[in-house]
């Protein structure tokens, strides 16, 4: 049954991190690691040779960097790429998304997120890390990255559009409930409907989808 598994290549220059990642991913029945690289050049060669489904690439690597490798790999038609980044290199995440990766994940992501990211990107859907800061949402919304072809805005009801706007303003379900005179449970229900219509998993995903599809406009201070 191994052919049904998601074939993954991981690239990171720190052995200790790769070891941990291997341990975590090997424990998942749907994922199979078919190769590991410790720099960008190795990654490009490995991808050519092994044809993975999903690539997880660290952005800071010696020699050919992660961003450069992603650019090169994207050119060859492979799009299911997840950028792996440290907690404070937001500008690099934006560069990686512009270079062709479909999702990103922070190295200090919460339990299960890396696996969720791999499975999401494997379905050709973008993945935005749960711990995305509002600053990063702004940076991505201003960037050239746009995985969305023109969406039919009638997809969302007026109530849903209202809630989308409030989610973009970083309001919690409880706050949204208070504003729209609804119970928190109702808001949660509509929220999960929105997430599934947008095909995203996180609040950052909702915000980026809304901004990229002109459903929400960010006020820039300067």
């Amino acid at each position: 049954m191994s052919s049904l598994k998601i074939k993954v290549i991981i690239a990171d220059d720190h052995d200790v991190y790769r070891d941990g990642l291997r341990l975590l991913l090997n424990a998942d029945e749907e994922i199979e690691i078919i190769g590991e690289a410790s720099n960008g050049k190795q990654l490009i060669e490995l991808v050519k040779e092994k044809h993975p489904d999903v690539i997880v690439a660290d952005l800071i690597m010696p020699g050919v960097s992660g961003v450069e490798a992603i650019k090169e790999i994207y050119k060859s038609g492979i799009t299911r790429i997840i950028a792996l980044s440290t907690f404070d290199t937001e500008y690099l995440i934006v560069e990686a998304l512009e270079a062709g990766s479909l999702g990103y994940i922070l190295k200090n992501a919460q339990k299960g997120e890396i696996i969720e990211a791999i499975k999401t990107v494997n379905e050709y859907n973008p993945y935005y890390c749960k711990s995305t800061s509002s600053r990063l949402v702004k940076l991505i919304s201003k960037s050239k990255f746009n995985p969305y072809t023109k969406q039919n805005l009638d997809l969302f009801s007026d109530k849903e559009k209202e809630i989308i706007t409030l989610i973009c303003e970083e309001k919690s379900s409880e706050e949204i409930g208070n504003i729209l005179f609804m119970s928190k449970r109702t808001v949660d229900g509509i929220r999960s409907k929105i997430l599934s219509k947008m095909n995203v998993k996180t609040v950052a995903g909702v915000a980026i989808y809304a901004i990229k599809n002109s459903m929400y406009f960010v006020r820039h201070t300067a």
């Binding site: 991190y17 990642l21 190295k107």
Partner: peptide, 20 residues
């Protein structure tokens, strides 16, 4: 600090996440 210590700490976190 950023590259090496950051990576090591992330790796420790990954290993903790492997506990079942």
């Amino acid at each position: 600090l950023h590259d090496d210590l950051g990576a090591s700490l992330s790796a420790i976190k990954l290993r903790l996440q492997c506990l079942k």
